[in-house]
């Protein structure tokens, strides 16, 4: 786990220097979960770690339980749970799953080039 985090830090440095301006962009993230299942809990903690590591101070994260607000599933075109929607910066992106694949999550959040 530690080794992985180190890798991430290393790569983060690399892409941050490459990204330049975009570092200052504000991230609006919505995480939709279906009840507090183990998957949901994993997703929340994974996301929080990433945000704290990479987007500290410039992200707005909201966790929404679809059971409480089922109509949001329709409105937001959600089919899978958990689903993370990156509303800003554009392009809009959906990341589904418990967000355990950090690499893919970073790619999905445009924090890392593929």
């Amino acid at each position: 786990m530690k080794k992985k985090i180190k890798e991430i830090e290393y790569s983060t440095d690399q892409f941050e220097s490459a990204l330049g301006d975009s570092n200052s962009e504000k991230y609006i993230l919505r995480l939709y979960i279906a009840g507090m299942t183990p998957k949901s809990i994993r997703a929340i903690s994974n996301l929080k770690t990433i945000c704290e590591d990479h987007l500290k101070g410039r992200y707005d994260l909201e966790v929404i339980d679809l059971y409480q607000n089922p109509q949001l599933a329709t409105g937001e075109q959600i089919i899978a749970a958990p689903t993370l929607i990156k509303k800003l910066p554009l392009p809009l992106r959906r990341i589904i799953g418990d967000l355990s694949g950090t690499e893919r999550l970073l790619v999905g959040l445009d924090l890392k080039k593929t």
Partner: peptide, 10 residues
């Protein structure tokens, strides 16, 4: 983008 486990509960 897929990362990890999910279901179609949505």
């Amino acid at each position: 983008e897929e990362t990890g486990e999910y279901d179609l509960e949505g």
